[in-house]
Simulated assay, not measured.
Amino acid sequence: MSTPSTSCQHVVYAQQLREISQVLAHNQAFEAPQWTPREPLLNGQMSVFEIQPGLLLRRVDVYDRYDLLSQAQLHPGIKISLVLEGQAEVAFDQQVIQLRAPDAGGVIVTLPKTAAFSRYGYAGRYERTLTLTMMPEWLQNSGIDWLYLRNTFNEARLQPWQPSIALRQALTALFSPQLGSTTHEAQRLQITGYALALAGEALDFMALPEHYRRPRYTQAQTDPRIARLLRQLDAGQGLMQSQETLATQLNMSLSALQRQFRRHTGETLGHYLRHRRLKRAQQSLSQGQTTIDEAAALAGYTSAANFATAFKKTFGLNPRDCQNHDPLHKA
């Protein structure tokens, strides 16, 4: 069950930061022109919990006291980083990404081997971040084919990602005083549940075809109405509604909705809805929750044969084979 590896509150000194992060990284170094080693590096609090062997959750709620460059070597595995408030600028093997809450705050990082990590801090900048680390042994024990992933990618792979609205809202509870430690069994269970939910959504996203992994919510490029619709659909809400009904809810004409959706996502609304419905059916089948006929109805098909045809075209396998050939699980 989840137990705290280490934590600190109010201010964070360099040595404390090394101790907190030692299970996640090694060879840590800090560069801050205005900083002296006797002074803390950060204001705020940090903690790392071992949820299960090889599954670690890091909570960060800090202000930078200085312009600070932090560097380290990260162990192989998969990391999910999510900025819930503020912003962060980090790099994995010199691939820099800026994360800003709420619309561009998440990234999934696959590290096939030890990777260089950098964090760029700026005096006065605030960051509230969750990072879930899935180490190779946890991935293998959970049925994720880590050997396949490791052999597929030669370098760090960064995938911008956003959780569902419901999960993002739920994860804010991890920073409540009630979940500040794992002293009580109920608290440990809650933290474990949040961590596994985060892992589940991210791994499910990784299983989507490449076409569906683009960041969709950036304010600079997306009509707020389309962004709202995408969040709603990705949370599983309104998937079975007609396009006309969705347009009415957004105070748009059907033609305007279809035009703007394609402009901002690069695909038609009908195609997107079909895929999300099929994906929901695929998840239900993989979890052993439905029959083929029930999954077909869940995807909006009255014919199981038509459903099977669409399913195989989308995922490359028949519905009956779905559980044994899940893209992120061993055959």
Rank of each mutant, 00 (worst) to 15 (best):
T152G: 11
A299V: 14
H10S: 11
E39D: 09
S253Y: 06
R274A: 14
Q16P: 00
G54L: 13
T192P: 06
Q16N: 02
C322R: 11
R213I: 07
K113N: 03
R128D: 01
L230A: 04
T192R: 13
H329R: 15
G266K: 12
T182R: 00
L189G: 13
E89Q: 15
W161D: 00
S181I: 00
A166W: 12
Q98S: 13
Q159K: 09
I20H: 10
I20T: 13
T290N: 12
N251C: 06
L230R: 12
R216A: 06
Q258P: 07
P209E: 04
P209Q: 10
E39I: 05
L74N: 04
A295H: 11
L56A: 03
I78V: 15
Y272R: 13
Q15A: 10
A29Y: 11
L254V: 13
D223P: 12
H184A: 04
D321P: 08
Q249A: 11
Q232F: 01
L203G: 10
P40I: 01
A256Y: 00
T222A: 02
S142P: 14
L17C: 05
I292V: 09
Q9I: 05
Y148F: 08
L229M: 09
E155G: 10
Q323N: 09
L111N: 02
L171P: 04
V83G: 07
A88L: 12
D61E: 10
L269N: 13
A29P: 02
K313L: 15
T110F: 01
E137Y: 09
D321A: 12
Q289T: 00
A299W: 13
H264F: 15
G316R: 15
A247V: 03
L56G: 01
S47C: 04
R231M: 02
D321L: 05
A299R: 11
T291P: 00
E244I: 08
R263V: 04
E155R: 14
I191D: 10
I80A: 12
I108Y: 06
A247T: 06
A202V: 04
D234V: 00
Q283L: 09
G44V: 02
A305V: 14
A227P: 11
A72Q: 08
T290I: 09
T222E: 05
T152M: 08
I51Y: 15
S176M: 07
I165L: 14
F205D: 13
L229S: 02
W161K: 06
R128F: 00
Q190P: 00
E85G: 03
R214F: 01
M134N: 07
D93M: 07
T192S: 07
T114F: 01
F117H: 15
A207R: 10
Y63Q: 15
S7E: 02
T131G: 06
E244L: 11
S70L: 14
Q94R: 09
D64L: 07
H211N: 11
P327N: 12
